[in-house]
Amino acid sequence: MSKSPTERDSPNMAEVGAEPGSSAQSRVKQSVVGIAAIVVTAIAAFFSIQSASGGEDIRSNMTLIAPAAAGGGWDTFQREQQQSMRVNKIVNNIQVVNIPGAGGTIALGKLSTMTAPNTLMVGGTGHIAAQIQFDTPAKIQDVTPIARVVEEFDIITVPANSPYNTLEELIEGWRADPAGVSWTGGGSFDQLVMTEIALAAGIDPQETTFIPSDGGGEAIQALLNGTAKASTGGFADMYPQVEAGRLKVLGIAAEERLPGTEIPTLVEQGYDVTLTNWRAMFAPPGLSDEQIAELREIVAESIETPEWKSAVERNYWMSAPLEGEELDQFVEDEIDRIDQLFKEMG
């Protein structure tokens, strides 16, 4: 049975010992709602003060919400955005506010109750995974998508001394022993990628073993100490270990090769696996067309700055701009895709 997932930017089910659909998860879900009420009450005063002191003019005053604690991927994204907007005077007064918890859905719930246009939250795959996994009251459909900005890719790695030297060798071994060839990763997104690989290879995901780790560091240790045989993990976490000679990389889950690397994609190796950890900007609901257009212009200006382009390269991101009706459809498709993968996981 595929083991319970975690998420780089969502609640760690391994810590509470619950699997999706279990009574324990119901208790976790109730706790999430309670925590959300406390956190939202605590931050309401901040946003009231911020709005009163700075007004609602978008170019004068803006808050960027990172729906996770400091130091994670969402936080890094928003602080890089803050830097590019501040240095290039795109927005006069800009601040980052961290609202962690429940896979980003506490922040999502807060954003869904706001009306002022001068707040942007980063969101993406992690939000969708959390709202499906825990059936949270807040949904990404409740807010306004402004623009998708970047994607982050998972790579498939094995220990340097692994008998598997190619993806096909790993798949053959996995087919022969789905439970015995154990996988790890730093979050439920990584397990979703593993699930998509299993389906593409004709392996029942519910017969596989996924050992959840709390972030990329634990996943690397699980590989190095032999607890896991293979990993799906974020490029930025895993690739330095490949360069150091501790791990071997067998493929990248992307439609095209990442510039500057020679890592073959899973697609070119015969496995149609392209699920990415994408990040987009979202605004409160109910904004006017003019306000949405202004927010899109601000994001467009920020991603053209030298500071932002340097951040993309430094964080191993891939620019993936998308907006308007195409972005709306993309989000809907991702919800359907991730929902189906969770069902396959059992």
Rank of each mutant, 00 (worst) to 15 (best):
M238P: 08
F77L: 13
P159G: 00
L258E: 02
D135N: 13
K248Y: 10
S31C: 10
I65L: 14
A222W: 04
I197G: 02
I155V: 15
P259N: 09
N315C: 11
A311P: 07
G73H: 04
Y316G: 04
A280I: 00
E151P: 01
A24E: 13
K110W: 12
I90K: 11
G217L: 09
M114H: 00
I49K: 15
F47V: 10
S302Q: 13
D333G: 12
A253P: 06
A24Q: 14
E307V: 15
I252L: 11
A280F: 01
V28R: 11
T166M: 01
I38N: 14
F342E: 01
R314Y: 13
E290Q: 15
A311R: 06
G71Y: 05
N12A: 05
G216S: 11
K3M: 05
T136L: 10
S162M: 03
P145H: 00
A14C: 10
I132A: 04
F210N: 03
L108G: 04
T76S: 14
P205L: 08
E290T: 14
N12W: 07
Q191P: 07
Y271E: 06
E304F: 02
A254H: 10
A201G: 04
F134P: 02
I197A: 14
Q81G: 08
A253S: 13
G216R: 05
S4I: 03
G180T: 05
T105F: 01
K309P: 04
P100S: 07
G346P: 01
A107F: 09
P117F: 03
T113F: 05
E304D: 14
G186C: 05
A280W: 01
G124D: 09
M281D: 00
D204P: 04
F77P: 03
V273H: 08
R257K: 15
N225Q: 14
N92L: 06
I35W: 07
N98Y: 06
K29Y: 03
I211K: 08
W174M: 00
N165E: 11
V33W: 06
S31P: 12
E151Q: 14
L295C: 12
G251N: 00
G109Q: 08
G186F: 02
A116W: 05
L223Q: 07
F46H: 13
I49G: 15
W317N: 08
A300N: 08
